[in-house]
């Protein structure tokens, strides 16, 4: 009873803050929008893919093992598109992985702070250039160069090699900056221990620091692969249009992304085999890149556990 008489008690009492709760709800919705995006992607791609696979003449087995992609005559084998995606990705990685790692080692283990300060932003500029510009670069610089090198009879105007190499240059800064972060996270004491045993800078970098940062570097490599698989504009411009089942990188062959871009660039009518097929390929692409990203994240998390 005594308590009730104290006016302070009333003052302390909770008052409803409708505004605050409302805003918190709005903020939560903002966060949920990103989840809805994922659900939307899975749902829409899934729905259209389902329509695609229920079309007469289309089977999952045929899709995964067929060597001809000719929607006009009802042939839907993804292998031609997949192989050219893998070939361009392979050449991209041939450039991006060794050079990216080399650049990361140089920046993290060798470069003076001053050199770092000028080289790093230059690589960042490379990362900020739109991919369509790289496509232009591939077609107008890399391809003529390759034709000069190997002869214009053997190198087609549109070819996977040119697209792959330029894609490698595009991905290089991504790989180098992620690898450098991993190298950077290796404790100083490890380097000092190696130097203390009389190792050269190179031996320290390659035999001590790189192995210690290996999982971080592998995570960077996988992200690089994922980026190459999903890259569209370079291959759409330089790798050629029209699917071809070929393993010769000097030939033209359309990739998965290139096909999606070409088909949707025209006025494709809804609910046609072509329309549904780009979603099926998109689903395939989504699953590949998602798996790569998840693996990379898992490996990177393990790396962080060790050093943080």
């Amino acid at each position: 009873m005594q308590i009730a008489q104290n006016p302070l008690v009333n003052k302390l009492r909770k008052k409803p803050r409708i505004g605050e709760n409302l805003i918190q709800a709005v903020l939560l919705i903002c966060g949920i929008i990103s989840v809805l995006t994922t659900i939307g992607i899975v749902f829409e791609l899934g729905k259209e893919s389902l329509l695609f696979f229920t079309m007469p003449g289309v089977t999952l087995k045929g899709f995964l093992t067929g060597t001809s992609w000719q929607p006009a005559i009802g042939e839907f084998g993804i292998l031609p598109l997949l192989t050219s995606t893998l070939i361009t990705t392979f050449f991209a990685m041939l450039i991006a992985l060794p050079l990216g790692l080399g650049a990361a080692i140089f920046l993290s283990e060798y470069a003076s702070p001053k050199a770092r300060k000028t080289l790093k932003p230059a690589l960042e500029v490379l990362a900020g250039i739109p991919t369509v510009v790289y496509g232009y670069f591939a077609l107008t610089v890399m391809t003529p160069f390759l034709r000069l090198l190997f002869g214009s009879d053997t190198v087609q105007i549109y070819n996977m090699l040119s697209a792959g190499l330029v894609m490698g240059i595009m991905i290089l800064p991504l790989v180098s900056s992620m690898s450098e972060d991993a190298l950077h996270a290796v404790p100083r004491s490890l380097r000092e221990a190696a130097f203390g045993l009389g190792a050269t800078r190179f031996e320290t970098a390659v035999k001590v620091v790189v192995p210690a940062a290996l999982s971080g570097i592998i995570a960077a490599f996988i992200i690089g692969i994922s980026r190459a698989v999903g890259e569209t504009m370079i291959v759409a411009i330089a790798a050629g249009s029209g699917s071809a089942f070929t393993f010769n990188p000097l030939n033209a062959a359309e990739t998965m992304t290139g096909y999606i871009a070409r088909i949707s660039g025209g006025d494709v009518a809804y609910d046609t085999p072509e329309y549904n097929s780009i979603f099926a390929i998109g689903m395939f692409l989504f699953l590949i890149t998602l798996a790569l990203n998840l693996v990379s994240r898992r490996i990177a998390a393990r790396f962080r556990e060790v050093y943080e």
Binding site: Q2, N6, L8, V9, K11, L12, R13, K14, K15
Partner: peptide, 20 residues
């Protein structure tokens, strides 16, 4: 207890507590 009122009671607003 702040003036005989437990500031951790369910019906107490922590924001009001900090104002006092």
């Amino acid at each position: 207890l702040f003036h005989d009122k437990n500031i951790y009671d369910e019906d107490v607003d922590p924001v009001q507590v900090r104002r006092m």
